[in-house]
Design a protein around this nucleic acid. Structure first.
Length: 108
DNA sequence: CATCTGACGACCG
DNA sequence: GCGGTCGCCAGAT
């Protein structure tokens, strides 16, 4: 399985905005749903400028474990995403990508 | 090939 | 709101 489509989409999330694993999965029609988005993020290659911290759980929760959760929280706050009770206010920061950005995974 | 393991999320009590 | 179960499925063991 190639997660390139996922990284491609995540890379387009603007500063100060976020996407949920579920949203990523639905947009790209990932087989396996949100969990697949999670797997992709867990395998995010570094050094490619992929804003992995802009992907959060369904209600804005940070699902990643420490010590990364702290880093994610810090990175988000640094770019203006305030966390209330350990969760992002999706009403304010959820990003709705333009269709052009939603290239879905194709099956051979 | 058999199991286990999740950076998930929907459901239910 | 919270914890437990279950479906999902690519990788790891």
């Amino acid at each position: 399985m190639t997660w390139d489509p996922v990284y491609k989409l995540v890379k387009q999330i603007p500063r100060g905005r976020v996407l949920t694993y579920g949203a990523v999965a639905r947009i790209l029609r990932l087989p396996g749903g949100a969990r697949s988005a999670g797997r992709a993020m867990a395998a995010t290659p570094q050094g490619r400028g992929i804003p992995w911290h802009r992907v959060v759980g369904e209600r804005g929760r940070l699902l990643i474990r420490e010590p990364y959760a702290s880093l994610q929280r810090k990175l988000l706050e640094t770019e203006g995403v305030s966390l209330i009770e350990s969760r992002v206010d999706l009403k304010l920061h959820l990003w709705t990508p333009p269709r052009r950005a939603t290239r879905k995974v194709q099956s051979a």
